[in-house]
Amino acid sequence: MRLKLNLKTLGLALVAIVACAASYLIAADHIDSPAVTGTGSDITDVYAFQSPANANNIVFVVNVQGLLAPTATAAASFDEEVMIEINIDNSATKDNTEDLVIQAAFDNGKVKVYGPEAPIQKGVMSTLLKSSPIEASISAYGANPIIGESNGIKVFAGPRDDPFFFDLNQFKAIIGGTATSFNNPGTDAFAGTNVLALVIEVPKSMLGSGSINIWATSNREM
């Protein structure tokens, strides 16, 4: 509209200016927008445990994009607009507010892990930390895991077997009222499928003492 008004004031033309767009011969409709669901921010599981390899370390695992069939795994990739954050409350009172965060951003085939460090911003908005990150290439499907390591911290990002096991379907049937008990043996709904995993191993000394409360979030860049 504004374009047309300007043209009129300039006295250039009586009619608006054409904007070239596909004619019906070549199909004027653009390809439909890609699916809005399954964008890669759904966290499937969170794990936190003492490292089996080093009792001085804690391992954090955050998985996204569950139920990947083996043949779909090679093409799966982390959503580069999404930053995964591990929030850590190490206060004595356990107020469930993050005192430290570990942030993992994905960029051009690499994972960049920041922290653990005090967050710049607490709550549902997050600001990417400014310290220099530990980087690792995102491991490819079928290749050996690529591990980034610095300051005693190890990072991995890439496809793995989904470690979760659960007869989810029977549980749904029970909740839905079409079954009254679990089967024995049950059926693991996640068997044979993969996830995209983020694994970070951190010295306990960087996290606090006694115990900590943790939770993971996925966050989309504004």
Partner: peptide, 8 residues
């Protein structure tokens, strides 16, 4: 800046 979408 990021805005939270999921939490677990």
């Amino acid at each position: 800046i990021y805005e939270q979408e999921d939490q677990m």
